[in-house]
Amino acid sequence: MSVILLALAQAAQVTAFVSPSEGEEAPPVLTVAATQESAASVPGDLSGLPELKFRRRRTMPPALSSFVRDEVAARRCEAADKRLRVNLAVLVAEDGQLRRIHPQAIGCPTVEQYASGVMLSMARANLLPVGETRWFRTSLLFQWQ
């Protein structure tokens, strides 16, 4: 799980701040390729966003759903009957580079993070230039027997 979070943090171009201990001077902000886009607020309603377009058709191997199935079976997620959809807001820079991924809450944080990692993998070098940095919507549907 920490590998996914690390990959997401690196791909999302995040800024991290470490709080100082009492009596210490605040350390400088640690920036990992920070950009203005990374600070853009996440849209609350995804329905008004344009659909994310890929260079090549994205396909999801059935094996990717096994993790989600196991999370549902272990009751770490709200009830799902052999399928679970995760809607995602994706911030894409003008050159087609992925900047941020934000899953909508579905009552299953592990699957939300997993879906973000899957989307990161699918989108890498697979997004069209968009002309301006903006948010898009997409979703992943996990299905199992």
Rank of each mutant, 00 (worst) to 15 (best):
I4G: 00
I4H: 00
L5S: 15
L6G: 10
L8W: 03
L8Y: 06
Q10V: 15
A11R: 14
A12T: 06
V14Q: 12
V14M: 10
T15R: 14
S19P: 15
S19L: 13
E22L: 11
G23T: 01
E24L: 03
A26K: 03
P27C: 00
T31Y: 01
V32C: 08
A34E: 13
A34C: 02
E37I: 09
A40F: 05
S41G: 03
S41T: 11
V42W: 06
V42C: 04
P43A: 01
G44D: 14
D45Y: 07
L46W: 05
P50A: 05
R57H: 11
R58V: 12
R58F: 03
R58E: 09
T59W: 06
P61D: 12
P62W: 06
A63N: 01
F67S: 07
V68P: 05
V68A: 07
R69K: 13
E71W: 03
A74I: 01
R76W: 02
C77D: 07
E78T: 12
A79K: 15
A80S: 08
A80Y: 07
A80L: 04
D81L: 12
D81E: 14
L84D: 08
L84T: 08
V86L: 00
L88W: 08
A89S: 13
V92D: 02
V92I: 10
H102R: 10
Q104Y: 01
A105V: 10
A105P: 07
I106W: 09
C108Y: 03
C108H: 04
C108F: 04
T110Q: 10
V111G: 04
E112T: 13
Q113D: 12
L120P: 05
S121V: 04
S121F: 12
S121N: 09
M122W: 11
A123K: 06
R124W: 15
N126K: 02
L128M: 15
P129D: 09
W135S: 13
W135R: 13
T138E: 03
L140V: 01
Q143H: 02
Q143V: 05
W144D: 08
